[in-house]
Amino acid sequence: MKFTSETKLFLGIIILTVGIITGAGILFSIPPKPLSKSELISPHTNITGNPSAKTWLVEFSDFQCPACKAFAGTVDMLSKKYPDDLSVAYRHFPLPQHQQAREAAIVAEAAEQQGKFWDMAHLLFANQEALSDASYASFAASLTLDPVLFETDRKSASIAAHIDEDISSGTTLGIDATPTFYLNGVKLTVGMPADLEKAVTDAVAGAKASQK
């Protein structure tokens, strides 16, 4: 085997390429610093479960997003399974391509003014394919909301501002898809609801073990 200057040049390029890829691999394998609650949850954010639980989940979601609907059952199941050990926060991130997403977020917040955010969220996901002004009114009626107050709140500037604030917060965090979950301040990479269930179950078990 003869080692020409060409051979050395090629070898240098190979070593440089492998070095850059190894460096990038090490850099990306460093776990990100968890975000604090104040960075992920705003004072108006809707939270269910125990607000002071050691395990806290934040979801950026869109009522018209099919994947969010697919995850909604698991989120609901987890909050019922761990009422004392988990808090779940819902933040709005209506995607522009979903025509009813922003209005659905407003409707959920209008329901919250009468203490029915989570019930309305459940109805919105369950009827995701049929969201319209008519269906919002019927959801409000089925939840026995005061219709006049509900319609007034749907036009509320402060509710619109809350949703804008959630979108702005999500955009600042670099969110570009829904649902996006943060567990104890760390962004999750979950492909399926079962992945979320496992991550939360492990976190709750870990928090319980550390208390002992």
């Binding site: 085997m1 003869k2 080692f3 020409t4 060409e6 051979t7 090629f10 070898l11 190979i14």
Partner: peptide, 11 residues
């Protein structure tokens, strides 16, 4: 392919 083209510089 990269390895073979590298080896072509030696042979």
């Amino acid at each position: 392919l990269a390895i073979l083209s590298f080896l072509r510089t030696t042979s």
